[in-house]
């Protein structure tokens, strides 16, 4: 194993674990970019779960959510409030946390706020962040904003948000990533899903919100300004537990995408679902034992390269019993 990968793995796993747990105020403003194909909710749940373990207070600001998510300490119904009132409400909710030191403030969508002309989104969000409060916000990438009175030269809200964020997670559906990787490895056209299918009437692709877990693309900006990019796989705890086996702590951990068992399997023998490349009645693949045995075989030309043979382009040939020595044949 290359030491480079080993180093990257250790380093980035430590980094994401720090980010998810909100330790050391690792990322004051985390932006989650999701789409119809993969919702950011699984990642939010993971954040809340870790926050509960760490006794961090969770304030969930609902701009579109009906029910208080499990594990949230405070649920602010902000959908009907105008931005200034919302700000007051949130300050009230976060400031009353005298007993708990840290607060995780979650916005379930920023699209609604971003389309408010009167809301100065960067200023609004910046005012929420404090040394003890970190901000986690979802932005739906595929939602068109109704910017009726936008100043034509002002940047798009998403551009501002991306600029402002200290960590950006983009979420992808696991099965889609696997299918795309599978196609790429075979130099096929990568499949597209959902709205990108441009199939009239199909707004969401099959395989969206994969129950097995989420694929995260992380972009973290350090204080120094240097960016770290990495792909991770976050398994879904309920999916592993429904398989019967009690999920060990190891199974629930975030792993690098290339280390995830699902992904490795697809690299080896193609995605489970669309494995229809060869439809034959006999087994083309190898079992693990066959593979090991095959790798153990030393082929003759490796033998021949050792020892005396091979110099100067000389041809080595051992006469067999059945060989008929030919006088005429030269150079043997």
């Amino acid at each position: 194993m290359p030491p480079d990968l080993q180093h990257r793995r250790t380093h980035n796993l430590l980094l994401i674990s720090k980010l998810l747990s909100g330790r050391d105020n690792g990322s004051p403003f985390t932006l989650l970019l999701d789409s119809l194909e993969q919702s950011a909710r699984p990642l939010i749940r993971e954040y809340i779960r870790r926050a509960n373990v760490a006794k961090t207070r969770v304030v969930f600001v609902s701009l579109e959510t009906l029910r208080k998510p499990y594990g949230a300490d405070v649920f602010v119904q902000g959908a009907e409030l105008r931005p200034p009132d919302l700000q007051k409400e949130i300050t009230l909710a976060t400031s009353s946390s005298s007993s708990l030191s840290e607060t995780l403030l979650i916005f379930d969508t920023l699209n609604a706020l971003a389309s408010f002309q009167s809301a100065n989104l960067p200023a609004f969000l910046s005012s929420m962040i404090s040394p003890t409060t970190s901000l986690l916000a979802i932005y739906h990438l595929d939602m068109a904003l109704q910017l009726s009175h936008a100043y034509p030269y002002s940047p798009h809200p998403l551009t501002l948000l991306k600029y402002l964020a200290t960590t950006i997670f983009t979420l992808y559906s696991t099965s889609h990533v696997l299918a795309q990787r599978y196609a790429r490895d075979r130099s096929l056209a990568e499949p597209v899903f959902g709205l990108a299918e441009e199939n009239e009437g199909a707004i969401a692709g099959l395989g969206r919100n994969d129950p097995r877990g989420v694929v995260l693309e992380m972009e973290h900006r350090r204080k120094s300004g240097r960016g770290v990019r990495e792909w991770f796989f976050l398994p879904n705890p309920s999916a592993t537990s429904t398989n019967g086996a009690v999920p060990s702590k190891k199974e629930l951990a975030v792993v690098l995408l290339e280390d995830s068992p699902l992904f490795r399997r697809v690299l080896q023998d193609g995605g489970g679902e669309d494995d229809g490349a060869m439809d034959v009645t006999f087994e083309l693949g190898l079992t693990e034992k066959q593979r090991r045995d095959r790798e153990g075989i030393v082929l003759p030309y490796f033998d021949a390269q050792k020892g005396e043979g091979g110099e100067g382009g000389r041809i080595l040939y051992d006469m067999g019993e059945e060989d008929d020595f030919d006088e005429e044949e030269d150079e043997i």
């Binding site: 999701d34 119809l36 919702s39 579109e64 959510t65 009906l66 969508t109 699209n111 609604a112 389309s115 739906h140 595929d142 939602m143 068109a144 904003l145 109704q146 199939n199 009239e200 009437g201 199909a202 707004i203 969401a204």
Partner: peptide, 21 residues
């Protein structure tokens, strides 16, 4: 824009999306 925005926002919230085409 309005239609797409409304449709997609609800699709994000929906537990089940049933699309006819």
């Amino acid at each position: 824009t309005a239609h797409a925005s409304f449709l997609i926002s609800q699709a994000h919230l929906a537990d089940v999306v049933m699309s006819l085409r």
